[in-house]
Write a protein that binds this DNA or RNA. Structure first.
Lengths: 204, 204
DNA sequence: ATCACTACCTACCAGTAGGTAGGCAAATGA
DNA sequence: TCATTTGCCTACCTACTGGTAGGTAGTGAT
C-alpha cells in the first residue's frame, strides 16, 4: 500500500513485472515466491491468489514474453525491403528489441541453457518457423550472389549467439570492456560493430 | 560400492565429477547436495565429510575448471604462429577445448549470466588479461593491414558469443538444426563455418 | 592391543520452500 | 440492503534444504 502503490497497473501486472525482474536476475530456482511478493508489497498467499502456482506464474510470464517478441519481430520481418538492407533492418530491429527488454533476453538464455527445463513450452519449436524462413532468405541471397556463400544454418546460429550474448552476459561483458552498464551508447556501438562485421563477411 | 565402484577415481574426484554434471545441467540453486551424493552413491553427510559446504564444493570445482582452461588455452596462445594463422589456431583450440568440456561451458555461461553471483571469484578479472592481449593482437593486425578494420573489443565479444553459445545452448540449437546432440561431425562443421565466417570478415 | 584416522552411516536440527485453510474488510451488484 | 465477490491477510502444513552430532567399521602404525 504505502510501498509501491501505483494505482495504474493492476496487482497482477505488478506481480508479472516483479517476477520478470527476479527470474531474469536469479533464475527460476533462485527466485522464491516470497521474493516476488515482497517486491510487490504483498504476502506470498496473496500472490497465490492471482496465480495458482509458481510454475503457472512462470508460464504466463514466458508466454507474454514470447508473444511480445514474435509480434515485434514479425513486423520488421514482414517489411518489403530486400537484399542486405533487409538483413540490416532485422538485425537493427533485433538489437532494439533486446535493448528494450534485457530481462526477457536473460530469461530466454536461461531457458535455452536448461533446454526447456521447467516448462512444457518447446522454445525451439516456436522459433523454428522463423529460423527456417531466415535460412530460405539467406540461401536465396547466396544463390543470387548478393551474399558470399556460407552455411546459412550455422550462420544464423552464429548471429544468434553474437547478439544474444551481448545482452544476456551484460554484467560480465561490461567488466571486460571496463565500461559500466548497457548504456544506449554502448548498445549502439555494439550494434554498429555487429552490422559492420556481418556486412564485411557477407558482402564482397 | 555396488553402484559405481570404479576403484580408480577417489570419492572426492567422483563427487567433483558428479557435481560438475549437476551444476552444469540444473545450475547451482537447482542442484541439491542430495542429488550429487546420490549420483556418487553416498549420503549427503558423507559428501560433507569431503567438502565443508556446498559453496566450497562449487568453489573447488570452479577453480579446477578455470585452471584447466587457462592451462590449455595458454599453450595455443603462446605458439609462435602469426597473422591469420594464429587467429585460426586459437579459434580451433577454443573449439576443441569447449567440445572436450561442454559441462564447463555451461557452468561458465551460468556464471556469466548471474554476474559472478554465488561466488567471490571475479570471472572477468581472470579473463581480462587474455582479453586485453587479444585486443592488442587484433589492433596490430589491423594496423598492419593483415585484417580489415573493426573494433577489436567488440569483435572479441562477438566471437566469444558466437563460439560459447554453440556449446552452452546445445540442446536448443540441436533442435533448431534438427540434428541430435553435439556429435563430433556437428562440432567440426560449426567450427569450420565460424572460421570461414571470420576469415571472410577479417581478410580482404 | 590400542590409538588415531578415514570414510561412511543414521538421526537430527533450524530454516525455508511452495501451497492451503480460513477469516476479514472493502467493493460490487441485484 | 444484503449477498457475493475480490483482494488481501495470518496461521498453518508438508517436503526438502544445507549442515551438525555422534556413532561405527576398517586400516595402519606404534
Amino acid at each position: 500500500m504505502t510501498d509501491a502503490p501505483d494505482p495504474q497497473r493492476s496487482t497482477r501486472d505488478q506481480i508479472l513485472d516483479e517476477a520478470l525482474k527476479c527470474f531474469a536476475e536469479r533464475g527460476y530456482d533462485g527466485t522464491s515466491l516470497n521474493d516476488i511478493a515482497a517486491g510487490v508489497g504483498i504476502r506470498r498467499p496473496s500472490l497465490l491468489h492471482h496465480f495458482p502456482s509458481k510454475e503457472s506464474l512462470y508460464e504466463d510470464l514466458f508466454e507474454r514474453l514470447l508473444s511480445d517478441w514474435m509480434q515485434r519481430l514479425e513486423a520488421s520481418i514482414a517489411s518489403p525491403v530486400s537484399g542486405w538492407d533487409k538483413a540490416e533492418l532485422v538485425l537493427r530491429a533485433g538489437f532494439a528489441l533486446f535493448a528494450d527488454t534485457p530481462d526477457y533476453v536473460r530469461i530466454m538464455r536461461r531457458e535455452a541453457l536448461d533446454g526447456g527445463g521447467h516448462l512444457g513450452i518447446d522454445l525451439s519449436a516456436v522459433l523454428k518457423p522463423l529460423f527456417d524462413s531466415a535460412v530460405v532468405y539467406f540461401d536465396e541471397q547466396m544463390r543470387n550472389g548478393t551474399f558470399r556463400t556460407h552455411d546459412s544454418r550455422h550462420l544464423l546460429i552464429t548471429g544468434y549467439g553474437a547478439i544474444l550474448t551481448y545482452f544476456s552476459d551484460a554484467p560480465f561483458i561490461d567488466e571486460l570492456l571496463e565500461d559500466k552498464a548497457l548504456t544506449a551508447q554502448n548498445v549502439h556501438d555494439h550494434c554498429e560493430h555487429v552490422i559492420g562485421f556481418f556486412r564485411a563477411a557477407l558482402l564482397n
